[in-house]
Design a protein around this nucleic acid. Structure first.
Length: 490
RNA sequence: CGGGGUAUAGCGCAGUCCGGUUAGCGCACCUGCUUUGGGAGCAGGGGGUCGUAAGUUCGAAUCUUACUACCCCGACCA
């Protein structure tokens, strides 16, 4: 078989890029740092949206939509927020083009300069809090539990398909609460929603924890994160949930009258998850044959490939295929019967492996004669010949088994690549040779954190619910009560 | 913004050092026949302002100059 993909072991970055392009998920666009998400990639995003919406609604949230443009003045209201985003903003300065009289072509009409520049949103806290000001007067108006599906733009220096593109798609939740406790609970609830989504739906195990002061969101009091481990040993921040305190309420003067009749500022949270998760999905599970999609996220769960020579062999195969397809569809399983005669079976096998379809059924004359099908599973690449009788129920169970197996495999990988380190030398060795998560004591100071950053690794998070353990900071030797997670990251 | 590199068919590249027929190869595409249980074989075919502009020359993909675009490394980051 012709080699289609770069080997993962040979060059991980190249393998990843190849995989995204050749599996038909996305491609680079003509616009710097942006990507085109192709139908197959978008179908995966839609599955994610569907599941996240279900989870958001189950926790009382509603969807809404706010403008793409943010007046510059809104943006500068929260000091840390500006600081964090100012360097990567796309700015609209004019609203009209005109014909260039001298050289032809189009130029920006200098007459059409905006009074106040508009920022293309890199995140929506400011425009949303400016709006919430009008929505909130009393504790009876609270809480506001709103989520938005949108695109945002961050003018990053360097980009990578799905992991960091100039424009990306995401959801951002923005909630307003009457009490600090309620907002803190919300922050915690949503990071747990993300962890559940990632583990149960995408099959990607995650660590949940707090970001350090220097790594948290610009404008947040506290940032909770889920951190996943990729197959090359690097960490990926997969979702964040921020407790914003009263920072944005104060910046946008959002006060309400509480039950006691006193004026108080509103408490806020925000939380987001992006198309980066498609990158996470790829880097967590795929192999050298292509994507391996957990069944719950797979746009196509089962593909049926017919094998036949002459035209006479096809009808009975099609009849069996359509019967099995109907049985599977009745069980809520998404099936594609690929009856194109423009591609050969071997080509189709390779193609659907590349696309990560969890289960493949092949039906040929041999199977028709014996009442069988050939069943292949993507995660283990095992093939079995099974009777057509009862195949739908068998596949239903198999999909569950694949979902669990894909998750277990990723979990085992993370366990094997999580190392407790007690000295600086051990940390450096783990980061250089093994990769993965290093668990180490840290004294909590910025100085020690900066020293760790010199290794190109960062403190990914301070684990929630981690056991208290006395130890010494690997940098300073000062006492510490808890290990933190250190890793190189995307 | 700093350092390095590239630009030739839809994609990936050779040719450039040392100028000289009609610019070539692989993949992809089209046609025909044979094939079809792991990305088929053979035969034929289509597709190029060689990044842009100027210069040197009898002659430029090749030499010179300027420009433009893109890629990689660093700072930034979901």
């Amino acid at each position: 078989m012709a080699k289609v993909l770069t080997s993962k072991e040979e060059n991980y970055a190249q393998w990843y890029n190849d995989l995204v392009l050749k599996s038909g998920l996305a491609e680079n666009s003509a616009v710097r740092g942006c990507m085109v998400i192709k139908p197959y990639g978008y179908a995966i995003w839609e599955k994610m949206q569907e599941e996240l919406n279900r989870m958001f609604k189950a926790t009382g949230h509603e969807n809404a939509y706010f403008p793409l443009f943010i007046p510059k003045s809104f943006f500068s209201r929260e000091a840390e927020h500006v600081e964090g985003f100012a360097k990567e903003c796309a700015v609209v300065t004019h609203y009209r083009l005109k014909t260039d009289e001298e050289n032809g072509g189009l130029i920006v009409d200098p007459e059409a300069k905006l009074e106040e520049e508009l920022i293309v949103r890199p995140t929506s806290e400011t425009i949303i809090w400016n709006t919430y000001k009008n929505w909130i007067q009393s504790y009876r108006d609270l809480p506001i539990l709103v989520n938005q599906w949108a695109n945002v733009v961050r003018w990053e220096m360097r980009t990578r398909l799905f992991l960091r593109t100039t424009e990306f798609l995401w959801q951002e939740g923005h909630t307003a609460h009457a009490t600090k406790k309620e907002a803190e609970d919300e922050t915690m609830q949503m990071v747990n929603v993300y962890a559940d989504f990632s583990e149960k739906f995408l099959g990607i195990p995650v660590l949940i924890g707090n970001k350090t002061e220097s790594e948290k969101f610009a404008g947040a009091i506290e940032t909770l994160t889920i951190e996943a481990l990729m197959q090359d040993g690097k960490a990926l921040q997969a979702g964040t949930s921020h407790f914003l305190g009263q920072n944005f309420a104060k910046a946008f003067d959002v006060q309400f009258t509480n039950k006691e009749g006193n004026l108080d500022y509103v408490w806020a949270t925000s939380w987001g998850m992006t198309t980066r998760m498609i990158g996470a999905l790829i880097m967590a599970h795929s192999d050298n044959n292509g994507l391996v999609l957990p069944p719950r996220i797979a746009p196509i769960q089962v593909v049926i490939v017919p094998i036949y020579k002459g035209g006479d062999e096809f009808p009975p195969i099609a009849e069996a295929a359509n019967r099995i397809k109907a049985q599977l569809t009745a069980l809520g399983i998404s099936v594609k019967f690929d009856d194109r005669d423009t591609q050969k079976p071997g080509w189709k096998f390779a193609e659907y492996e590349l696309k990560g379809v969890p289960v493949r059924i092949a039906i040929g004359p041999r199977d028709i004669k014996n009442g069988n099908v050939e069943l292949a599973r993507r995660d283990t690449l095992e093939k079995k010949v099974l009777p057509q009788e009862g195949i739908a129920a068998y596949i239903q169970d198999l999909l569950e088994e694949i979902q669990e197996n894909v998750y277990q495999k990723a979990l085992n990988f993370r366990l094997e690549n999580t190392h407790r380190v007690d000295t600086w030398e051990e940390l450096v060795e783990v980061l250089d040779k093994k990769g993965g998560f290093a668990l180490a004591h840290w004294d909590g100071t910025k100085e020690s954190e900066d020293r760790i950053k010199e290794t190109k690794a960062t403190i990914r998070c301070l684990l929630l619910n981690s056991e208290q353990e006395k130890g010494k900071c690997i940098v300073s030797g000062k006492p510490s009560n808890q290990r933190v997670v250190i890793a190189k990251a995307y």
